[in-house]
Simulated assay, not measured.
Amino acid sequence: MKYILALLLWALPLLSWAEPPLQPLQIAEQFVAPGGWAAMRDYLSGEAAGQARRQSLGQQIPATLQRRCELLYQGPATAVVTVELRDSVRRSDIYLHFRRDSATTAAPWTLAAVRSLAMTQLGPPMLKILADMPPAEITQYNQKHPEASHAFMLGNIRLWIGSDADILEHFNRHRPQFQQAARLIQSRQFFTAPLDSTLAGEQAANADEEVLALLRPLYISRVTQRTLGSPAGLEFIIGGVTDNTVGLLYQPNAALVPPMRPERVIVMRPLGHGWYLYKTT
């Protein structure tokens, strides 16, 4: 018996030195670091485990890009970390979705999926065509497209393919105008609960001259409730292709804000006072 006690006493310091399991933010920082990560496989699950077989995400990202990780959400079973990639020219964002399998395992938190807004590669060529237009062509363009002027399209596409920081800066600069637009739309009761399957209210809202006069300078393409299906919420769509959209949600009731999931809402970033930046896939 005394030998067993002696063995336990000898092992106690080793147990106390054991490092605690990594948390989502720590895993993200290791996963996007430029160098390799020997323990990477222990912290991957689901599709992420199949995608990162030989290299971490950090090894696949150009070494010249700076990486900044931020814990956006961590709950009992899921977590989301945003990663901003930037250089001297531009910024972009990716979103790491984690799940907690069991508090008793050696690595309870694992990276399950990596997401970013898809189809944005279509934006830069469109932006170049618009930016290179001579004044005479811009005049013709505006005559042919009065509902979406040259200036509107430039601003809209820049936001669509821009970083979260770009959209946040735009929103904060025009927050009073966004709030004014939300109040006007609510006061005219275009959207009713439950969600209108006929889309009559949505069509009326996006045809209203006063609403459009507020939305166009904000580079918002339309307002809807269909993308997220949040009752009493207003979705100010910036842009996107098919299901890959980016926009601003106004939902004063936090309990009705859709949760982040890698299969649909890849990011939902609180902006304060009921406003959120969101992206879908």
Rank of each mutant, 00 (worst) to 15 (best):
S102P: 02
G162V: 03
G123I: 11
R226V: 09
E202T: 05
A151I: 03
N206P: 00
I185T: 06
L199D: 08
Q203R: 15
R115E: 15
F191K: 02
M119T: 07
P125T: 04
L218E: 04
R158N: 11
W160T: 06
Q189G: 12
E210T: 14
A204E: 12
D101M: 05
R226Y: 14
I185M: 13
V114Q: 08
P108D: 12
D196P: 01
F171C: 03
E169M: 08
L117W: 07
P124N: 11
W109H: 05
R183H: 09
L214N: 01
H170Q: 05
A131N: 07
T139A: 15
A207V: 06
A103G: 06
M153D: 04
H174M: 08
L212V: 11
L130T: 02
R115W: 05
P134K: 13
A165T: 09
P135R: 13
E169F: 01
G201D: 06
T110D: 08
E147A: 10
L199M: 14
A165V: 07
P108R: 09
Q189F: 08
Q143S: 08
L117P: 00
T192I: 12
A106E: 12
L154Y: 03
M126G: 04
H145L: 12
P217S: 08
S187H: 09
G123S: 15
